[in-house]
Structures are given as C-alpha cells and as structure tokens.
Amino acid sequence: MANKKLADWIKNEELQGYSDEELEKTLLKRGYAKEEVEKAILYLRQKFHLKALLHIPIYLIIIFFVSLLFLGWAFGEFVNSIILSAILIISVLIMDFFDKKNMDLISWTFLIVLDILFLFVSPLFFIVAIASFILAIGLFFKEKRQVNLYLINMSLLISLFITAMIIFLVYLGIVYGIIPLLPTTSLTYLLLIFLPIIYAIPPLIYFLNKLCLSKLKIN
C-alpha cells in the first residue's frame, strides 16, 4: 500500500515546481525507502480528479457528445445515446468523489461496471466502450501504470467516437456522392472504395487521442 501522507506531501511540493527526481532524492536523504517513494509517486499518477479531465480540450468534449448523439440517431438508438451521455457525465462526478475519498478499489470496480452498463443500454456502443477499455489497459501498462486508467479510458472513448463519426460522414459522402455515379458492379469492387477509410481509422484514433491528452497533466 502506498503511503498516502507521503503522496500528499509530494503533490504539494510538485505544485511548488519541484520535479519527481528532486523530490525522490530529498526523500531518500530523509531516510525513506526507495520502494516506498516510488509507490507514493505511482499512487499519485493513478489518482483521478475532475480538474484533470477538464484539461481535455472543450471542443473535443463537445464534438464527442455530438458524435454520440449523431451516431445514436443514425443507428436508430437516439434515446440510448442520450442515456449514455447522462451516464458518462454522472460517472465522472462519481469517480471524482471516489478518488477524493481515496476509495481506490471501488473506483476500479466502478470503471468495469460502467463498461458493462454500456452493454445493457446499447450493445452497439458497448463495442466502442469495450474497445476503448482494452486500448486503455494496453496504454496503462505501456506507460508503466504512471497514468490514471479512467482518464485514459475516457480519452480513448472520446477519440473512438469522434473517429467513428468522421468515418461515418465520409462513408455517407461516398454512398450519396460517388456511388450513384458508378455503374452497377460487384459488391467487392464497391467495398474497395472504402479501403482508404479503413486505413485512416487507427491514425485518426491515434491523432485524436494525442490531441485529447496534449494538455493533460496527471499530477
């Protein structure tokens, strides 16, 4: 278990402009074990708070909700997309509360419950939610657990939904703009037109996720 008092002290010192390395050296001189100091810093990195989430550019948050509602309408699940929007907003507040109260285990459990909740509301959006969760887990371990899983999950969820909307809009453009100009042909040939869109999906997610996290300082 991380020493929460030590973590709070590191957090206050960081706010005054000291780096992790400087603080670690000071604490080692004061007689703290290296392992204890590292655990306290890791604990700090994994903590979530509302202000950190608000570092995601506001226009991306707005586009995310527009995407969620638009895709919901396009797939005939508009009501479900409104319900999911409400659930996401409430989940942010709940997560903030859990972290303030240091209820770490409950906040992890809540994150899993949140993804399962997607399945009950809309199996279609559950696919996006579970994809973002798996990617978030991957990134979490890639970054040696120095990030908050919920934040990464939210950032990827935003990226995936915006990507889905962009891809869908391009698909509509092709279907209504280009396809009518073509002669009747094999479905295979028609699907070939969409290859560039498929190619663009991961770079788009990558770019949007980078944009989401560009201003984010997880302290």
């Binding site: 005939g76 509509l172 073509l182 042909t185 094999s186 479905l187």
Partner: peptide
C-alpha cells in the same frame, strides 16, 4: 440513416 445508406450501396451491387 444507416439502413437507407446501406440500401443505396447495395442497390448498386450485382
């Protein structure tokens, strides 16, 4: 919208 667009796409297939 998805149904309509799929209909439009498939209508051009053999």
């Amino acid at each position: 919208l998805v149904d309509k667009s799929l209909s439009k796409l498939f209508s051009k297939s053999d």
